[in-house]
């Protein structure tokens, strides 16, 4: 676990894995994985995805939760390139009540902190759809620099749309503490969700 200001980063397991069965079929997920063909994800797909990320030596799926322990979503770094010390940064709010909140921004800052201050990366890449204003705003507030637009690059809901490309260098990162000091992050104060029903408990109960 790494403790942040509004959220903590934790291993992606237990309740996170259960929630992902819903999260992986929601808009926020698809916007964070805009390259991927949109299709429904079954429980089996979700399990396979988690297993793949657990084995991935060039990336990781990391959960983030509110200070009251309520799971919110995930931050992901992927395609780490050791020679150049860069990786792709991704994040999404699974719990849609937190969409656009400072908790999600803090999760992104915590991902940057982990990549630069622990993993010693030199650069992070990020991408957003031009109309995904919430994501664009998080990236800007985190300090990512807009480096260009891939024109009409991907198919999205009936159209070919641009991809906005961002980068952040370690030399541009003031450090997590200094970054947070300049941001005035505000907690959403949301109540924790009821905990998801555990599959095994249900089975035991029925049997």
């Amino acid at each position: 676990m790494i403790e942040g200001t509004l959220v903590d980063l934790v291993p992606f397991e237990d309740d996170f894995a259960l929630y992902l069965e819903t999260w992986m079929n929601e808009e926020a997920w698809f916007r964070a994985h805009l390259w991927e063909r949109r299709e429904p994800h079954t429980e089996h797909d979700v399990k396979k995805y988690i297993e793949r990320m657990e084995k991935d030596e060039r990336g990781a799926l990391i959960g983030f939760q509110a200070k009251n322990g309520d799971p919110i979503g995930a931050v992901i770094f992927d395609h780490e390139w050791p020679r150049v010390r860069k990786a792709e940064a991704r994040f999404f709010a699974g719990d849609s009540r937190y969409e656009g909140s400072d908790e999600v921004l803090d999760a992104l800052l915590m991902l940057v902190r982990y990549c630069f201050e622990t993993r010693n990366l030199h650069r992070l890449d990020a991408v957003a759809l031009p109309f995904d204003e919430v994501r664009l705003e998080h990236l800007r507030r985190a300090g990512f620099v807009h480096e260009g637009t891939l024109r009409q690059h991907i198919r999205w809901d009936g159209d070919y749309v641009d991809m906005e490309m961002f980068g952040l260098l370690d030399s541009e990162w003031p450090g997590y503490a200094a970054k947070v000091a300049g941001l005035d992050l505000q907690p959403s104060g949301l109540e924790p969700k009821p905990r998801p029903e555990k599959k095994d408990e249900k089975k035991d109960g029925a049997g």
Partner: peptide, 12 residues
């Protein structure tokens, strides 16, 4: 071709 993106300091 059109130059669309310049990813700064991403090649060594």
């Amino acid at each position: 071709f059109r130059l669309e993106v310049r990813q700064r300091q991403s090649a060594l």
